[in-house]
Design a protein around this nucleic acid. Sequence first.
DNA 1: CTTTCAGCCTGGGCGC
DNA 2: TGCGCCCAGGCTGAAA
Length: 288
Amino acid sequence: MPELPEVETVCRGLQKDLKSRVINKIIIYDPKLKSLNHHLSSLENKKISLVTRLGKQVLIKVDNLYLLIHLRMTGRLIFVKNSKQHSLIDEIQKGEAYLEHKVIRLTQDNKYKHVRFLINCKGGTLYFFDPRRFGTVEYFDKKPELAINSIDALDENLNSYLHQNTSKIKQNVKSFLLNQARIVGIGNIYASEILFLAKIHPERAWSSLSKNETNLVCRYIKQVLTKAIEKGGTTFSDFQSSNGETGQYQNELYVYSREGEKCRKCESLILKITQGSRSTFYCEKCQK
DNA sequence: CTTTCAGCCTGGGCGC
DNA sequence: TGCGCCCAGGCTGAAA
């Protein structure tokens, strides 16, 4: 689910909600997260100072310590302010939520929502829901950084990075955009959208791009991701911001998930192919 | 070195 | 209604 714009949307919401709150208690329900247990006590009674994005991950600064959360496919971080209405903690204590395979499942609208862990702080609780349980939470005692030789997709130096470091890469352009060891933040939805707008065929080799085409890709990486952030991300089935709102960028898509529908520029039919075992959507006529 | 592909998981949608 | 199959926004690590 979450690519850079969705993670940025979550971070902005959490920064507002969590900043300056003191952590009372952290509870882990999913045994897959138990490595975090060793560090929980060092986080309690400390103040959250900053929530920022690191690539596709959410970085929460707690005093001089860090929690790095990767949402992967279905992870959601939802902050619920304290109110008279019962919180999940209350429901657990009242036995209205129950344990199944040690992962809390909360019934709500007859649907199960899997809570892997929660942070209860003064004024509210941050829940980490993740049905598929691909998401990860890591603890660091110093600030984690992006991998060497990689660059954030919205870094202002992206253009010179692409020209200086990537001209020999023979990988197809679509797979290259998804490669997080290089550009960090682009996922399967936005990769197809960026290539459509840049009018570049997804099966071209990255090294075959002219200087001008590389500039175009760079321009549309910035444009697409920035606009998607403005729209609060893309919601297909289950992306939600930290206050539970859905994104709006799905209404702007030119090709993703539009196989067999008419291209919004030339009216020929959108095609779907598989590259690196991921779906790619494109317009044969618009993209050369 | 590069590239592919199964695996990690669950739930929704579809065809029968 | 139900069952089986396919699909999914990400990433890793083993194998080729």
